[in-house]
Structure formats: C-alpha cells, structure tokens
C-alpha cells in the first residue's frame, strides 16, 4: 500500500483518514493505526521524523502523565497518595498512539512537498481564491520576514541586548514587532503596486493540474478503507 502520488488526492485521503481515526477509543484499533502508519513509512522508505515525535506539546505530556492518576478504576500502582488505575493507563496509551499515528501520517502526506505546491493543490481543490493567495503570500514572504527579524535581533544583540524576564525585554520586543509590522505594511503597499503595474486584475494565471492517475485514486481509497475498517473494529 502506498499513498497517492497526486498531492490533491493525498491531502484529501490523508485528511479523511485522520478524521476516521480521531474517534478511536480502544487499545487494539489505536495500536493498529500506529502500526499501519509505521508500515507505510517502511514501504515509502521514509526516515521516521523523531524530532517531530518527541516535540510534544507541554499539555500533551501533562495529559499523558495525569490520565493514569485521574481516571478511576482498578488500582495498578501507588505513589504516596496517588493511585494509577489500569483504565487510566490504557486511556493514556490510546491517546499517545493516536497522536503519534496522526503526526506521522501528516508527515507522510507532506513529505518533500514544497508549500508552493500545497497552495496550487488547494486552489485546484476549489478553496476560495483569496485564501489561497494569502497562503501563497505567507509562503513567499515568510523566509524574507524571518530573515529581516533576525537582522533586527542581531542588531539588538550588537547593542548588548540580553533577553531576560523584565519589562525592558518585553518593551524591546514590542518595538521590534512594531517596526516589523510597519515595514511589512510598507512592503505590502509596494507589492500591491508592483502587481498592478504588471496588469494584475484580480486573478493569477494558474495552470490546471493534470488529472490524477487511476493508481492514485486506488491508493487514496485504500487508505480511507483502512482507516474506516479500524473505526468499524473500534465500534464493534
């Protein structure tokens, strides 16, 4: 089993699969979902994104740590006044498996895909044109803006600015951000003017992407069918 090669179908099928595995509530199906995504990684010969997996939100860590102790059930382990229940541990395991499977699936869907192509695919999927243009605009200017911000921060460091937990630091970041916003607005005016000068009339010339191959449809349906089967197992 492979993911569809066509980005539009890959995004749709991946999104559908994520929605289908979101309600999983039992250990078996959740573990199977994780195993299936890991198998996809092996088939696609993608290295596992360990950094993404370990980069858990703080509240997720909190959730996984507290769930065993806050859910009532058969006692499993006692640490002082705290009792870890079997049910709580199982629930934490299910949540961890689902979150890991989802992060991995998102990684696979967008592996080696430039954000510009995502924008084109979103346009082909008939998302509102202004939204697609905001997306492409952010993609286009994000690196530039970040470089500009880095330059301003370098300049602050050259003037011996050391960030700390105090009002001076927060004020300095406020001035930095204010300056960035001002420059961005001026740049936006220039960009808009340049677009008009080149005859922009509310529409970009966008080529229609080729129709997806039959193989891509099959792969997308397989992914959805697999996720649906897991959900059916979970509800059985």
């Amino acid at each position: 089993m492979m993911l569809p090669g066509d980005l539009r179908l890959r995004m749709l099928a991946g999104f559908g699969a994520l929605v289908l595995i979101a309600p999983l509530s039992r250990q078996g199906p959740a573990a199977a979902a994780l195993a299936a995504v890991l198998a996809l990684f092996a088939v696609q010969r993608q290295p596992l994104p360990w950094r993404r997996l370990w980069h858990l939100e703080a509240f997720l860590v909190l959730l996984l740590v507290t769930l065993p102790f806050t859910l009532p059930g058969t006692p499993l382990l006692r640490i002082g006044p705290l009792v870890a229940s079997h049910e709580g541990l199982e629930r934490a395991g299910v949540v961890a498996a689902k979150v890991a499977a989802s992060v991995l699936l998102v990684t696979l869907v967008f592996a080696a895909t430039e954000p510009e192509r995502v924008g084109a695919a979103l346009r082909a999927l008939r998302l509102p044109e202004p939204l697609v243009r905001i997306f492409l605009g952010v993609v286009r200017y994000l690196a530039l803006i970040r470089a500009e911000m880095q330059r301003l921060q370098d300049a602050m460091r050259m003037r011996s600015f050391r960030p700390g937990s105090n009002r001076h630091t927060w004020r300095s970041y406020g001035h930095l951000l204010g300056m960035m916003l001002l420059r961005a607005m001026q740049r936006a005016d220039r960009v808009e003017e340049a677009m008009r000068m080149r005859g922009y009339a509310g529409r970009f010339l966008a080529e229609t992407p080729a129709r997806p191959a039959g193989r891509d449809w099959l792969a997308g349906l397989l992914l959805l069918a697999g996720a649906a089967a897991l959900l059916a197992w979970d509800m059985a």
Partner: peptide, 24 residues
C-alpha cells in the same frame, strides 16, 4: 482585493514573531 498582500505580509510577521521565545 487590494488588501490581500497586506494580510499575507502581516500574517507572515505574526507567524515569525510567534516563533521567538520570550522569557517570563
């Protein structure tokens, strides 16, 4: 329609600024 570049550029600034970690 003419405000779209401005929304995009401001969104990029807010995105970049949200990546900076500020000590508290």
């Amino acid at each position: 329609d003419r405000a779209i570049p401005r929304v995009a550029l401001l969104a990029a600034v807010f995105f970049a600024a949200s990546l900076v970690s500020i000590p508290v």
